[in-house]
Simulated assay, not measured.
Amino acid sequence: MSTTYSPSTSTSTSTSHATGRRTVWRHGLAASVVAAVVTTTLAAIASAAGVSFADSSGESIPLAGFTQLTLVFSLVGVGLAAVLARRARRPRRTFVRTAVALTVLSWVPDLVVGFDAASAATLIGLHTVAACIVVPTLASRLDG
């Protein structure tokens, strides 16, 4: 009995991993844009409803800041997912656990910087909304 080498198996595996990484980036970028639009819109609504987003020094978060920071940190998540897709034994599980931990850590500044209760609660909610958009999108593109 002899065993033969099948180059098509090796090639298709490499191609599917490369395609998977492109899919993570493409879907992650789209989810990041959606999250930025949603969080900015919700921040504008909250601001119109009277939430100040001013810290104890009186500095207020500009509306564009919500867009920029949501995009930046969502893209960090996309990069993390892409790296884990390559390196982790169980990329989806590792990514979700890491993303949830990082989302909870993102609440800390909202609680300690000196925002009033309404601002802090709204900011925590906005972080959570962004994560609820980006994390499942990326997780669905990763293997177990």
Rank of each mutant, 00 (worst) to 15 (best):
T23G: 06
G20H: 06
L123C: 02
S16L: 01
V34K: 10
G77T: 04
R93P: 00
I133E: 02
R87T: 12
A49S: 15
A118Y: 11
A46W: 07
L142Q: 07
R93Q: 01
T40W: 07
A31N: 14
A18G: 09
A130V: 01
A117M: 13
E59F: 08
V134Q: 06
R21I: 02
L111P: 07
I133V: 11
H17K: 12
F73L: 14
I124M: 15
D143F: 00
Q68A: 14
R90C: 00
S60P: 00
T122G: 06
V100E: 13
S47M: 09
T39I: 09
S16K: 01
T70M: 11
T4F: 01
G125W: 01
R92V: 00
A118C: 12
G58H: 07
L63C: 05
A82G: 13
R90K: 07
A49R: 15
L105I: 00
S74A: 14
F115I: 08
S32N: 10
L142A: 11
F115Q: 12
S106A: 11
A82Q: 03
A88V: 04
A30P: 08
F95E: 05
I61A: 07
V76Y: 13
P7K: 03
G28M: 09
S119Q: 11
R22A: 07
S10D: 13
C132Y: 00
W25D: 01
G125Q: 06
S10T: 05
G125D: 03
T11R: 14
L138I: 10
I61C: 04
G65R: 12
V34C: 09
A85R: 06
A18S: 10
